[in-house]
C-alpha cells in the first residue's frame, strides 16, 4: 500500500519545522555566537580577559538550554544581549590589562630616565662650579697681569682709572713735540692697549701759568694731540683715543717756583675700565 498524500504533507511539514528549529531566528543570538568565536580565537582577549570570556560562554550555555527547553524568544534575546555585553567587556578588559602592563613598564622606564636626568644635572652643576672656579682663577690671573702692566708703565690706579703721567721733561719748553725719551713709555702703553682691546684712553694736556691762558690751552691741546699721533703710529685705533687740553688748570704744584711749574707742565693719560668708560675731570 502506497503512502497517502496527507502522509507526505505531514512529513514535509515535520521536516520544515525541524529545519526551522535548527536555524537561528534571532539575529542577535547569531551575532553573539559569531562574536564569541572571534573573541575566543583572539589571543589578546583569550589571555587578557579569560574570566569575562567565560561569563560570556556561560550566557551562551544558558541560551542553548533555554532553546532546548523551548523558552520564549524574548528571554533568549535577553541572555543574548547580556552575552554581547560580556564579549564587549572582554575586549575592553583585555585592552585595560595590556595597557596596565605597559604603564608598569613605562613607570619603570620613567624612574630610570629620571635618575639619569638627576645624575646629569648633578654633573652639570659640578661642571658649572669647575668653570666658575676656572674663570675666577683666570680673572685673578688677568688682574695680576694688569697690575704688573700698570707697574711696568709706571702708572697709578685712581678713581677715574689708570693714570699714566708724561712729565714736562718729555717736551721742549713751549713746544708740543715729544722728545725721543718718551717713546718707551708710549710703546708700553701701546702694547697694553693692544693686549686690552676694550680699553680706551683719554689724553689730557696741562701747562704752567706762564703765558696767556688761551695760549696755554692751545699748547696743552697740541701736546695731547702729539701723544695721540704717536699712539696712532703704533696702530692704535683713533676712535679709542680722546684728547682734552686744560691749559694751566688743574695744577698739581705751586706755579710760583720753577720746580712746581715743571710738575704742572705735563700730559696725563687716563686708561678706561674694561667697558671703555672714562669719567670726565670735574672743574674746580
Amino acid at each position: 500500500m502506497k503512502p497517502s498524500l496527507p502522509y507526505h504533507a505531514f512529513l514535509c511539514l515535520l521536516l520544515l519545522m525541524i529545519a526551522m528549529s535548527c536555524k537561528e531566528t534571532d539575529p542577535l543570538v547569531k551575532e553573539v555566537k559569531m562574536n564569541y568565536k572571534e573573541a575566543k580565537n583572539d589571543s589578546s582577549v583569550a589571555h587578557g580577559a579569560p574570566d569575562v570570556l567565560k561569563e560570556a560562554h556561560d550566557q551562551l550555555k544558558i541560551i542553548n538550554n533555554l532553546k532546548k527547553n523551548g523558552a520564549n524568544k524574548k528571554l533568549i534575546h535577553h541572555y543574548a544581549y547580556i552575552a554581547k555585553q560580556k564579549i564587549t567587556k572582554a575586549y575592553d578588559v583585555a585592552v585595560l590589562n595590556a595597557t596596565q602592563d605597559k604603564i608598569v613598564q613605562a613607570e619603570n622606564e620613567r624612574r630610570s630616565v629620571l635618575s639619569e636626568v638627576q645624575k646629569a644635572k648633578a654633573a652639570a652643576a659640578l661642571r658649572r662650579a669647575e668653570i666658575a672656579q676656572q674663570q675666577a682663577k683666570e680673572a685673578q690671573k688677568r688682574s695680576q697681569e694688569l697690575a704688573q702692566k700698570i707697574s711696568e708703565m709706571q702708572a697709578e690706579k685712581t678713581d677715574r682709572g689708570i693714570v699714566l703721567t708724561l712729565e714736562s721733561v718729555l717736551f721742549d719748553f713751549g713746544k708740543a713735540t715729544l722728545k725721543p725719551g718718551s717713546e718707551e713709555s708710549i710703546a708700553r702703553l701701546s702694547r697694553f692697549l693692544v693686549e686690552y682691546p676694550k680699553r680706551t684712553v683719554m689724553i689730557e694736556g696741562f701747562t704752567d701759568n706762564i703765558g696767556s691762558p688761551e695760549a696755554n690751552r692751545k699748547l696743552s691741546i697740541h701736546r695731547a694731540e702729539a701723544v695721540k699721533q704717536v699712539l696712532i703710529n703704533h696702530d692704535i685705533d683713533k676712535n679709542r683715543i680722546q684728547i682734552r687740553g686744560y691749559g694751566e688748570d688743574f695744577a698739581v704744584a705751586d706755579n710760583s717756583t720753577e720746580t712746581g711749574r715743571q710738575l704742572n707742565r705735563r700730559v696725563e693719560i687716563i686708561i678706561s675700565d674694561e667697558n671703555g668708560v672714562i669719567s670726565e675731570r670735574f672743574s674746580h
Partner: peptide
C-alpha cells in the same frame, strides 16, 4: 559593566 571596562581602559 561594559561602560566601566571601557572607561577604565
Amino acid at each position: 559593566e561594559t561602560v566601566e571596562a571601557k572607561t577604565l581602559s
